[in-house]
Design a binder for these strands. Structure first.
Length: 252
DNA sequence: ATGGTTGTGCAACAA
């Protein structure tokens, strides 16, 4: 089974690109972030036509998460403790709990949103401690808006104040990971690889990006994972998202 | 220091 995560930056604006990628990749599950639309205006029929059932937790204009699956999916849970329903969506698929997360961007140091970002990571970790036993088969995927290590950004020395690579953000990310997750991409690949490139300043063409989209497995899930890779291709297409998909392959 | 781009929705904000 293959499960992917992709910040699509508006599911309606991105429909042609998402359709093309789903058809050529043939992944079983796609967790999306920044769908930017209400559940009522989500293009459900378009996903059904491609053979995918859909779980949605959206809002107008901002945020929004959704999971498309062509294998049986059950027990959708929006948010954590009822909070942030447009950022967190969990479902059960083949005995695996898949959590789709769009973690806060946070802005610059000193912005109100920056402290809220750090508090989100702390609070969400505490929620995972309460909600899930450590032996659970758990897959946490999504746009975490933080790059973990120097290799995951294009200029680590000059980026100490860059959104997504500040010391406080990296510490918050590591604290969340320490629930018991394994960074699946880094387990299988040691090379530099980004998942997001700013639309501005030709950052993609200049190969200046960050690895801020992640797939993390609990111990008991990670032993079943046989690969995790980044598919850069859809970032080269017309009208792309600024992010590109990460794919996890799990042995049956 | 600012600007650069994209999406939503039609001005301004978020990323």
């Amino acid at each position: 089974m293959r499960i992917a995560t992709w910040n699509v930056n508006s599911v309606r604006a991105r429909l042609p690109v998402v359709r093309q990628w789903l058809q050529q990749s043939g992944v079983d599950v796609l967790a999306m972030q920044e769908t930017k639309t209400l559940d009522e205006t989500f293009p459900v029929a378009e996903f059904r036509d491609m053979g995918y059932d859909i779980a949605i937790s959206g809002q107008k204009t901002y945020n929004g998460v959704a999971i498309a699956s062509r294998v049986a999916m059950s027990n959708p849970v929006k948010g954590w403790d009822g909070r942030d329903p447009s950022r967190i969506l969990a479902v059960e698929i083949a005995g695996i709990t898949v959590i789709d997360g769009y973690l806060p961007h946070g802005g610059e140091r000193g912005d109100e949103a920056f402290q809220r970002k750090l508090a989100f990571f702390e609070g969400f970790r505490a929620y995972l401690d309460r909600a899930y036993p450590a032996d659970r088969q758990l897959l946490l995927v999504g746009d975490f808006n933080v790059a973990p290590e120097p290799i995951d950004v294009w200029a680590p020395e000059e980026m100490q104040d860059a959104i997504g690579f500040m010391r406080e953000e990296r510490d918050a990310l590591e604290h969340l990971r320490a629930w018991g997750f394994v960074d699946l991409f880094r387990t299988f690949h040691q090379e530099q690889q980004y998942t997001w490139w700013d639309y501005r300043m030709n950052m993609f063409k200049r190969r200046m990006g960050m690895r801020i989209d992640h797939a993390w497995g609990s111990k008991n899930l990670s032993v079943r994972v046989v690969d995790c890779l980044v598919d850069v291709e859809p970032r080269t297409w017309e009208k792309p998202s600024d992010h590109t998909p990460v794919i996890v392959t799990i042995s049956s």
